[in-house]
């Protein structure tokens, strides 16, 4: 499947924008419910608003990483047809092929590790540092920027 690194970068950025919109909406709902708990009516949503707000960033980080991984797989499928490496190997393989600076490769692995902890718990026993949506976007887009313009 042909690809375009600018388009994949914009897709990752788009997830950050959606996160901003969702956070604004849920935060607004929480404040409105505090002022007037009756606005929720008989809807079961009110008890879950705080949890939603707490988990919103990681939810969108998982989506953002999925978009990033799809971009890498699109590129990898063009250069190594039929090969479907695990995500860690995919990142390392693309980094090697596209001469990604090692500090940036490490940053992307930190996003991957945090995303894995969110999705799988600390199953892989990796040292994990929380990553904000904005920092994740920065690392992932800079990595994508090392790919060719098109493939």
């Amino acid at each position: 499947m042909p690809g375009d690194r600018e388009e994949w970068g914009q897709r990752v950025k788009s997830i950050e924008r959606q996160f901003g919109a969702a956070r604004f909406a849920v935060d607004r709902l929480r404040n409105d419910l505090r002022r007037d708990p009756t606005i929720a009516g008989r809807s079961p949503v009110a008890p879950y608003v705080a949890d939603t707000l707490r988990d919103l960033a990681v939810t969108y980080l998982v989506r953002m990483f999925a978009e990033f991984e799809s971009g890498l797989r699109s590129f990898w499928g063009a250069v190594k047809p039929g090969k479907k490496p695990m995500t860690e190997q995919l990142i390392n393989g693309v980094a090697s092929k596209c001469r990604v600076p090692d500090p940036l490769r490490v940053e992307v692995h930190q996003v991957r590790a945090y995303r894995n902890r969110v999705v799988h718990g600390n199953e892989y026993d990796e040292a994990v540092t929380p990553v904000s949506v904005a920092d994740a976007r920065r690392s992932l887009v800079l990595f994508l920027n090392r790919l060719p313009f098109e493939w």
């Binding site: 970068g9 950050e16 976007r137 887009v141 800079l142 920027n145």
Partner: peptide
């Protein structure tokens, strides 16, 4: 308006 290439 963004600062590229990171879309800051």
């Amino acid at each position: 308006l963004y600062l590229m290439p990171a879309y800051d």
